[in-house]
Structure formats: C-alpha cells, structure tokens
Design a protein around this nucleic acid. Sequence first.
RNA 1: GGCCCCAUGGUCAAGCGGUUAAGACACCGCCCUUUCACGGCGGUAACGCGGGUUCGAAUCCCGCUGGGGUCACCA
Length: 497
Amino acid sequence: MGKQIRVRFAPSPTGALHIGGARTAYFNWLFARQQKGTFVLRIDDTDRARSTEASYQQILDSLRWLGIGWDEGPDVGGTFGPYRQSERIDVYRTYLEQLKATDHIYPCFCTAEQLQAEREEAQRKGRAPRYSGRCRHIPREEADRRIEAGEAHVYRLRVSEAGETTVRDLIRGDVVFQNSEIDDFIIWKADGTPTYHFASCVDDAAMEISHVIRAEEHLSNTPRHVALFQAFGVEVPLFAHVPMILAPDRSKLSKRHGATSVSEYREAGILPEALVNYLLLLGFSPGEDKEIVSRDEAVQLFQLDRVTKHAAIYDVKKLEWLNAHYFRSQSPDAVVAKLWPTWVESGYVRADEVDRSTIAWIRTVTEFVLSRSRNWTDVMDGVRPYFAKVNTYDAKGVQKQFSGQDVPHRLRLVADRLQTVAPFTTVVIERAFRELIEELQVKGGELIHPTRLALTGMTVGPGLFDVMALLGREASVQRLNAAADLIERGELVNLQK
RNA sequence: GGCCCCAUGGUCAAGCGGUUAAGACACCGCCCUUUCACGGCGGUAACGCGGGUUCGAAUCCCGCUGGGGUCACCA
C-alpha cells in the first residue's frame, strides 16, 4: 500500500544468460515499469570459483540487447550498492553479527564428512536427510572456547520445529510448509563466506526488495528464506515463482537441445523484439487473441497473477514465426545498413560507394527481397543474384524448367526481345514479354519459370519483371544466353545445387 | 524416498459451474498469383484416470497416475 515497488533480477555470472533467465528478467522489468517501481540488477557471484568476468559482461550485454534496462545495478550504481555480492561481504558480516546477537544462529562444528555420512544413513533408512541438530544445544561458553581454539565451524539458523511457514506467492497463492520439514540450514560457511541463501536474503532485505520474482526452482527453498527474513526482523517480501521453460522432451533445457542462451539466438539472427515477444507468450496470455505484443504494450497488459502455473515447452517454430513478422517490418534502409559490411566483404558492394543511383538500386533490391524473407539468411540468399554472377542453378528447377526441347531457343528469344525494350522498366518489360508469350502461343508459366531460373538460378523470388528491371537489360540478356549455352552444351549438370 | 508445485490439441494458451471447448504456431487442403513469401478461407487435432459435490462439471473436493522442482559448507 503506497510502498515502493522494488524488484530485482539476480543472475550468477557462471554462464550465458539463459532464455529462462531472460524471461524472468523480462517479467521483473515489466512489473517494475508497470508499477512505476524500481528494477534492480544484482550479480549473485558468491561462488567465486565458477563466476567469470566474461559471463558477467555477456549477461549485461544480453539484457541490454533485449531492451531490458535496469535502474540500479553494478554499472550504473544506486543508493543500495554495491550490486555485486562479491563486494558486499561487509554487509553480510553485519547481518551475521546481528543474528549472533539475537541468538538466531549458532555455530556448528560438525565436519562435512560427518554430515555426509548422516545423510547417507538417513537415505538408507528412507528418512528425510535433515541436520540432526547436534550442535544446537552446545553451551555458549563451550562454543566460544572451541571457536577461540580455532576449531572449524559454520553457522546455522535456528528454525523452530513447531508450526508452519506460509509463502505468499502471487502466481500460486499461499503455499504452506510444515516447519518440521525445514532443518537448521547453514548460512555461513567455514571459510568465512555466506551461503547463497543467506547472501540472497540479506541483499533482498538490505535493498528493500518488495517482490521477489524468480524461477520456480526456488519455491521449495522459500520457507528457509522466509525464516531468514523473520530472523532479520524485516518485512517478508511477496513472491512470484514463474514456471520453468522445458525442452521439447519435457526435460530441463540444456545444450543438447540446441540454442538455449540469448546470445545464441542473437547470433542466429533472431531479433530482440521477437525473442522478448516470444518469451512473454511463453507463460502469459495478453488476451484478446493478441500474439504480437511490443514491450510497451506488454508493460500495459502484463499481470503477474495471470502468469501460468505450469512449465512451458519452448517451440522454436513459433519464435521463428514471430521473428519473421518483426523481420519483414524492418525498414529496407536498416537492413542495408546492417548487411553493408558483409556485402563489402563479399564483394557485392564497394565500401566507399556513394553513387546515388547505385545506392537507390541496392535499397530497392533489398526491399523486394526483404518482403519475402524470414531472417538474415533469407536476405543474403535472395540478394545474391543481383550482386554476383549466377554460377549455380536450383537442381529441382533445372529438372523441371530446363528439360524441354526448345527451352534454350526460347531463352534466346526472350533475350532478343529484351534488346528492344525501352525504357527498361517493369511495365514495359512485362508488355514485351506478354507479347512474346502470345506469339509463341505458350502458357505464361512455360516462359516465365525458365526465364527466372536462367536469370537468378533460383525458382523463388520477386516478380519476374521486377527481377529483370533490377538486373538491367545487359545482365538479363547475358544471363539468358549463358543459360541457353549451358543447357545446349549439357554443362548444367555440374552447376546444380 | 520426504516435502512442494503443476496437469486443456504436437506446442503456446483462453476458459474461473451451463460455451458448438477460443485464438496462435506447426501440419493439410483451397483461393490470390508468373514462382516464393505475405494475405484470405477451410480442415485434422485437447479437457490424463477414477471417485465424489451439484439439476448440471474442463471449471469445486478427494484419490491415483504422470511431469517438474527441492532436500549441499553450488548458486
């Protein structure tokens, strides 16, 4: 009620940003924007061994690319910083001392081997592997003495055995856990560093996080977190555990299922708008049969309590469909700019090209090709015949369009007729071409399809007369005659693709 | 194994006691068309099972089954 809405996304920099993480980040962002709240980016790098600077950079990079910006974070700072757990050890110590003072925690001298053995014992007897509580009642003086003597120890939270703990989850409703199910878990390791659960809760408390929106895998751990917040004596945040994203075989998403990280999709040519749109649809329905939802619209429509409760299986096909939609709606100019370096490299264009008509022509070629493309590969393939010589011909096309007896002859007739066309524009070309069709008394397709194949090596593409206009008279005539030659000499066999 | 979450077509997902059980992707037809893509029209395809409650259950309750998560001095 009137309280500041503060949410956070807290990835550990131990790998690339996963699409599951990206969705969690997006939901946090949407909620913050909609509620006029604050979105905090915190880096949970308490695991120094596995955390890498490269992952850290990549995660920030992926988030920015997706258009998910943060109000407070390691790079931009904020009043609750620092935002990397590795830089917050003093904060954790302070909270540790507080819990010591309030007797919410106690030192435990059990060795890892001892505990391991007990766990196995419990497993064998079919009991839950819980901490026995052996060190719970060691007198204060004895504990102090052993610590003084340098005995290795950890700290555990005293969790009351009676009663129950309720997790207030905005997606699932109240989830109740019996306290007897929760053991005295470790919050501080023997090496003098906090455990993840402790660090995470300290930060959420210290950063005044109001809503913890995170992956479902944390739900089972949440009663422990609630116990910690209560021990701190702070208000327990509200939770929202978003369902997981599963692979097509219902197993956890992993490398063997293909692209799983944001950067991989980026490299594969998926547009950020498409990915973010897809992620929204995976677990949320914007209503009114809407499928295409921009970030701004999503901010309006998003409702945390309408996020689905069950895991979703990701379907690349739908992502690709969404991507095709966004892809085609790009401006040709933007596409030209994006592909320019590649085209220079391929020798399609000159790096220092400034000729107006050439640039206009490139733009038009791109526009025609773009309208029938779903991704960058489609554009690259579709554009090739206009920039480079045709040196391969679609195999099925050759079989179907070049097998007729008089195809070479007809191609030459087309070439000859083109010589008379002026101005060499789409409508004039079409008029001349139609006349030839009339004269030859063939069906349009009989002449059109072989011509397209001769001109571009492909059976698909923009309208034939547009193709010819773009290619220009000289190139068109040359290619038609060249194809006719190849067919007659039977050399096409080696050029099929 | 204990505990927790979940369960509508192949996939995403509407539905919140009475519907011919939406829509989208994918798939299959047809139309448009010189091809492809786009677009339009149509089709195949779902309430996991068993008990209740109710005049009436996809919707509420219980059980089962199935899937997932979690039980570390990992995060």
